[in-house]
Amino acid sequence: MSIIATNINKSFGDPPVHVLKDISLEIKDGEFVALTGRSGSGKSTLMYILSSLDNPSTGTVEISGKDIAKLSEEEIHRFRNEELGFVFQAAYMIAELSVIDNVLMPTMKFDQKEKRRSSAEHLLDEFGLKDKMKRFPRQLSGGEQQRVAIARALVMDPKYLFADEPTGALDTESGDVVMNIIKEINAKSKTTVLMVTHDPDFAREAGREIHLADGAIISNG
């Protein structure tokens, strides 16, 4: 059970700009991998391809032994819902929903809201947001919103957590809190984490760092 990418290429536009060049890698179960590189190095694009949100121009991605490109629409949506969690630089809260409803949103896709409610409440409690469950996103700070976003990503108990610069929009203190949560998730639940980051300090905290430059892997390990 791992993420295996083979000869991934990605190009955009006409004339084509090659963003990723023949990338092959394997991320083993339970690993905490930091994807680093300068802006435009292709790290976010690689993460989106590895997480099934984007398709490679050529090459294959296998997650848990499944070739993503060969999954049907229904299978890919179920797979994303049950196996993958996402955290972005922005928290992307649904403004109309309370904190607890935001966290429970993934559970509603396949009618698991009541089944997962205690898990959602536990996660919020763990992230120091127990007293803010009924609040709305506009009533939370940026760091709190990002913690809610992490709780939302984890509520379905996914095998993989993909984080695209989760601390990018936060102050140092909030960034540290979010980083500690992610580390703890990886350590305690053995959730495989792939995190894109600019920050070398955060990258060092991951078990493994993959460094990209101009769409190619410069260092892996």
Binding site: H77, N81, F86, A90, K109
Partner: peptide
């Protein structure tokens, strides 16, 4: 648009 993006990443499909 952001809500749509996050919902799609949660597994909600086009029909949803």
């Amino acid at each position: 648009r952001q809500d749509i993006a996050i919902l799609r990443s949660m597994g909600y499909d086009t029909f949803d």
